[in-house]
Design a protein around this nucleic acid. Structure first.
Lengths: 121, 121
DNA sequence: TGATTAGTTAACCATATGGTTAACTATAGC
DNA sequence: GCTATAGTTAACCATATGGTTAACTAATCA
């Protein structure tokens, strides 16, 4: 069951609501980076990046391995799973082929009508 | 090309970052509702709901048809599409079967290796 | 040991967010 | 026309967010 008050979901969506953080995630998709490497292309102070990293870490979207004085960050994309699943509940609203009736027809190949599908919450 | 600074993406993710707004979206998935009907189950004032509706409207996630003094709200789930696509770029990171190599193998049925896929940004 | 480097923490600031109550607009109904 | 209803707008408040600079901690290196 999808719980709309799930604080983890809230943290992930909120984290993704910031363009800088989406850019950080996009950079990390290319492989792990240190904080300085990560920060380099941004026109923003290191403390600002540090804060963004804390937010991403709090959402479980990145992990950190500390080696000496350098912090290596890695993408933990699995944290996006719940957010993706939440959004996908609604996919049938913009892709009619994926609606409940469509799924049913695809499976059974008959025209019997289904109840109007409701979304999990 | 996915643009991480896309303000529309920012509005959609930010809108979804609030549990009340996710609950509103979930309710509207069951069909259009007036503002009062929508607000009924929430322990929150009507103006608070009104604000949330404005945010959802600004993100393109709901539409409004005004009939007399009642406002009928409808889900516009298509606005979720860009957010879903953004997240799905990263699906291969938590579902190895959907990685670039996996897709390639599924299509060609051979074992030739591919370059490490990068994420669009 | 002393200087440099990596990164965080602290203190601060401006603005945004999420809520409230009170007042308002406008439609509906008697 | 008066009153009730649907909903917004305004004003306000507390806290969160996103940024800054300065100070700090700790590791590296000459």
């Amino acid at each position: 069951m999808v719980n709309y008050s799930d604080p983890q979901l809230t943290r992930v969506f909120s984290a993704m609501g910031d363009p800088t953080r989406r850019a950080i995630v996009a950079r990390l998709a290319g492989g792990g980076l240190t904080v300085s490497q990560l920060a380099a292309p941004f026109e923003m102070s290191l403390p600002a990046i540090s804060k963004h990293l804390r937010v991403l870490e709090g959402a479980g979207l990145i992990s950190r391995r500390i080696a000496g004085r350098t912090h290596h960050c890695n993408l933990e994309a699995a944290a996006m799973k719940s957010a993706t699943e939440w959004l996908e509940q609604y996919r049938r609203f913009w892709e009619p082929r994926l609606d409940v009736l469509g799924e049913y027809l695809a499976e059974t190949e008959n025209t019997e009508e289904l109840h109007d599908g409701e979304c999990k919450d």
